[in-house]
Design a protein around this nucleic acid. Structure first.
Length: 377
DNA sequence: AAGCCGGGGAA
DNA sequence: TTCCCAGGCTT
């Protein structure tokens, strides 16, 4: 029935096609009754928890977000607490989750909600959309899940499900195609069960209608209504433009340790990993002699220096190839733009990106070695 | 419309 | 390795 939808998916579906889609909502909801994943924001779907979960889940898998969710709502159980939190606290709660502006926007929104909405998350799609960090998808998800408002929530999973249901050959990176698929989602939406339906579509996408060549059509409740499955092209959909190759970057990372502390530097307030802390580092690969000369300029006289195992970190658009040096110094002397931090302070208030995991892993041992003997050889 | 912004698991 | 994830903001 949906086979006749424009192959490029660039025009609005016709009335008859939408009626075909509408009939799929019921079997999808029935499937959801038995297959819904048990999740903390479903067990207790108050607006605040739904909001936090949706922000954490932006471009992030459920399994990755879960431990962060528990910790976050425990530390900051409501909107006023979020509005008042220290930035360092926020970044520590988000440390390792990535896309750190998400948590800054979360707090910006919380402060707006306290000032302009009486401390309660707005319950309309349009008002939600105005808040920082909340776009079309997230506004739809919160409105439908927390407030049962009949608006679609079309994320990557749902785009894939819809593209296959309609055998849509359009590039889902294009706004025009997204708009068409969103209209299809709106047409399918049962007005009384919007939140359940939106979550059902997402679960269907992540449990059954899997990406790439792995759709499990034999488990799907709507194969007969799926044009992609009928035409045998489900595993080729959705069409997506290829991504650009990553740029490579060589870096030299300096782990300085002295008197039970290590030297950290704050990253710029904008750009990659904005505002997070890191070990002092430089572009390019420096030799031990280069590093010694550099440290002399900083007024640091190394008691010992050793090369560390090379480390690599892959970002979406970039790749860091890191050469590391562990430097023991006798004294934690001041260095411009840097702070000496002990393990406890680091755990409490200094958020480091995962890119440095290869170095932070051994840091406790390295710091312990500097506590007992001031002179190390 | 395109670029930027993390990190990790799966194939 | 590549893909992609309960995306949004900036230019």
């Amino acid at each position: 029935m949906n086979d006749t939808v424009a192959a490029t998916c660039s025009g609005m579906p016709e009335a008859g096609q939408l009626e075909g889609l509408r009939q799929l909502a019921e079997p999808i909801l029935a499937w959801y009754e038995h297959n819904a994943r048990v999740l903390p924001w479903r067990e207790q779907p108050d607006p605040y928890r739904v909001w936090i979960s949706e922000i954490m889940l932006q471009q992030t898998r459920i399994e990755a977000a879960l431990p962060y969710f528990y910790r976050f709502v425990k530390a900051l159980p409501d909107i006023p607490a979020l509005a008042k939190a220290e930035e360092a606290t926020l970044l520590k709660l988000w440390e390792g989750l990535g896309y750190y502006n998400r948590v800054r926007n979360l707090q910006k929104a919380a402060r707006i909600i306290v000032e302009r909405h009486g401390g309660r998350l707005p319950s309309s799609y349009q008002h939600l959309l105005k808040l920082p960090g909340i776009g079309e998808y997230t506004a739809g998800a919160i409105a439908s899940i927390a407030y049962h408002i009949p608006v679609p929530a079309v994320d990557g999973n749902v785009l894939r499900v819809l593209a296959r249901l309609l055998a849509c050959q359009g590039d889902i990176a294009q706004p025009r195609v997204r708009k068409t698929l969103r209209a299809a989602a709106q047409a399918m939406l049962p007005r009384e069960r919007a939140g359940d339906f939106n979550q059902a579509m997402m679960d269907l996408g992540s449990l059954v209608c899997l990406p790439g060549a792995a759709p499990r059509c034999e488990l799907c409740p709507v194969t007969t209504g799926c044009a992609g499955c009928r035409q045998g092209v489900a595993d080729k959909l959705p069409v997506k433009s290829p991504q650009k190759p990553r740029a490579m970057q060589q870096k030299t990372v300096l782990v300085l340790a002295a008197q039970g502390k290590t030297l950290l530097r704050r990253r710029p307030a904008e750009g990659l990993l904005a505002g997070l802390w890191e070990f002092p580092n430089l572009d390019g690969w420096l030799t031990e002699e280069d590093v010694a000369a550099l440290l002399a300029g900083w007024g640091i006289r190394p008691a010992s220096m050793q090369g560390l195992a090379d480390a690599r970190h892959i970002f979406t658009h970039m790749e860091w190839h890191m050469r590391g040096y562990l430097v023991y110094a006798a004294e934690a002397l001041p260095v411009a733009n840097c702070v000496w931090v002990d393990g406890e302070a680091m755990r409490r208030a200094y958020a480091l990106p995962s890119a440095y995991a290869a170095f932070t892993r051994h840091l406790p041992r390295w710091l312990a070695e500097t506590k007992n003997n001031l002179e190390i050889h």
